[in-house]
Simulated scan of single mutants.
Amino acid sequence: MARPKSATHELQREAILDVAAQCFAQRSYIAASMNDIAAACGTSKARLYHYYRSKEAILFDLLDRYTQHLLVIIGQTEASAQRKNLDDRAALHELIRNFLDQYESSATRHVALLGDTKFLGDVQRELILDRQRDVVSAMTRFLKRAYPQRITAANQTAVTMMLFGMINWTFTWMRPDGPMSYRAFSEEVIAMLERGLA
């Protein structure tokens, strides 16, 4: 009979994922070892193996949870927009704010999503890539509703990726103690969508 998991098992796994994401961001996924992750967690490698059988298993759980969470943010934003009776532009603006709020607290997980998905096995990689496509499709949907005269079949991919280009790489240059907060930056992104630089 299998031993039941402790009440703190999920909390421990989340803590391991946070530390692993930091290790991957600082050293790279390739360079970071299970020993490095265990040491950063303040535990033994044997204890780490109690939670994850391999570094790839850690990476997959990290990306699996993170991409699911991004999809939850989209669903919550849609529900909130309906509840608040927001127009389509306000709903898009809310989604941008919500994404950047998330990016502020999960920069290392976002680094892993953008740079380390390629290290997963075929089946797991395709699942994560499918979720990323779902996120992109949702953003396209929000954009098309917000700017129906501007977004066409010919330019929708370019405009969607332009928006992601503005927000997805904040971890490379934004700092918590920098001159601009993530919330202030979200307002700049919204202003750029609404008015350009004119």
Rank of each mutant, 00 (worst) to 15 (best):
93 H>M: 06
117 T>F: 01
17 L>R: 10
42 G>D: 00
124 Q>R: 11
130 D>Q: 11
87 D>Q: 13
73 I>P: 13
139 M>F: 03
91 A>T: 01
156 Q>P: 10
15 A>Q: 14
63 L>N: 04
176 P>Y: 08
77 T>A: 07
191 A>M: 08
188 E>K: 15
108 T>P: 01
95 L>R: 00
191 A>C: 10
143 L>Y: 03
179 P>K: 06
9 H>A: 05
159 V>C: 10
55 K>M: 01
54 S>G: 01
71 L>M: 05
78 E>W: 02
137 S>D: 06
61 D>H: 05
51 Y>V: 09
141 R>P: 00
194 E>P: 01
182 Y>L: 11
132 Q>H: 00
58 I>M: 07
138 A>I: 04
90 A>L: 07
9 H>Y: 10
163 L>E: 11
63 L>S: 10
17 L>W: 08
127 L>I: 15
152 T>R: 05
8 T>G: 10
55 K>Y: 01
131 R>G: 08
181 S>Y: 08
44 S>G: 11
78 E>R: 05
52 Y>V: 13
162 M>C: 06
157 T>G: 12
92 L>A: 03
156 Q>V: 09
155 N>I: 03
123 V>D: 02
95 L>D: 00
136 V>W: 01
23 C>T: 06
51 Y>N: 12
116 D>C: 11
130 D>C: 11
65 R>V: 03
103 Y>P: 02
38 A>Q: 12
82 Q>Y: 12
4 P>A: 11
89 R>I: 14
180 M>P: 08
47 R>P: 00
61 D>W: 04
48 L>P: 07
11 L>Y: 15
3 R>W: 09
98 N>P: 04
123 V>H: 00
89 R>P: 09
66 Y>C: 13
87 D>F: 15
12 Q>Y: 13
35 N>W: 12
161 M>V: 09
29 Y>L: 12
66 Y>S: 15
169 W>E: 13
90 A>I: 06
126 E>G: 00
115 G>H: 14
138 A>W: 02
126 E>N: 01
98 N>T: 09
81 A>C: 08
94 E>T: 01
182 Y>R: 07
113 L>T: 07
190 I>S: 10
79 A>N: 06
77 T>C: 06
31 A>S: 15
137 S>W: 03
164 F>G: 11
157 T>K: 05
151 I>K: 01
198 A>D: 14
79 A>Q: 04
156 Q>H: 11
16 I>N: 12
131 R>V: 14
9 H>N: 07
162 M>E: 07
156 Q>T: 08
126 E>L: 01
137 S>G: 08
28 S>T: 13
15 A>L: 12
